[in-house]
Design a protein around this nucleic acid. Structure first.
Length: 191
DNA sequence: TGCCTGATGTTCT
DNA sequence: GAACATCAGGCAC
């Protein structure tokens, strides 16, 4: 376990790889859900697909905050997605968490998602995992060293375990290979 | 199995 | 008024 978020003071591309294998600890009442990050995407202000591309706005200002904050945005009228803010303060960069692997507290996760979801479909998508972990705009700007949502940094994975591909669901800068996932993991959102 | 669409709010043009 | 870092359900094949 790495104690400080300093390693996230890095470019989004590097930070997205470092975050693979790290964990979230979500506290809801007296229940704790623990999940492992298995899929990420990098976004920064030099990238046309990034929310921070057009500069700071009320919505995107969290992306310009110090590393280790959570940027939650609402999309398509019904979904939340969560990002971990990275890079130096004042530079708009974040890593989208696309998929996580449940480790413990899964029954709570299932309840959050409703009866329809189960097994692999519980957390294998950015909006699904937000729902499963009860993440919404109230956690926008939350600092991930604190309750009720903590980020636990683990040792970086070896390069051989990381697959790098193009990002999903975007219409700009589609050719950039800024999506990363853990090789062979069954909880990634799509191959 | 795979395409199509409905749901639906916030942001920016 | 359109775009949008989505998901799940329906219907055709």
């Amino acid at each position: 376990v790495i104690e400080s978020f300093n390693i996230l003071n890095n470019n989004a591309n590097t930070a997205a790889k470092l975050l693979l294998g790290c964990e979230f600890e979500r506290t809801i009442g007296n229940k704790i859900i623990r999940v492992r990050i298995v899929e990420t995407e990098a976004y920064d202000q030099a990238d046309a697909a990034s929310h921070s591309y057009k500069g700071m706005s009320p919505r995107t200002k969290v992306m310009f905050d110090t590393p280790g904050h959570l940027y939650v945005y609402f999309i398509y009228g019904m979904h939340y997605c969560c990002n971990i803010v990275v890079g130096p303060e004042g530079y708009g960069a974040a890593v989208l968490i696309r998929a996580v692997e449940p480790l413990s507290g899964i029954c709570v996760t299932e309840k959050n998602r409703g009866r329809v979801a189960g097994g692999l479909n519980l957390t294998n998508g950015p909006a699904k995992l937000c729902k499963a972990l009860a993440i919404d705009n109230r956690l926008n700007g939350h600092y991930l060293a604190d309750e009720p949502l903590k980020l636990i940094l683990n040792k970086p994975l070896p390069k051989s375990k990381i697959v790098q591909t193009t990002r999903l669901g975007i219409t700009k800068a589609v050719d950039l290979k800024l999506r990363f996932y853990i090789k062979g993991n069954q909880y990634i959102s799509k191959v």
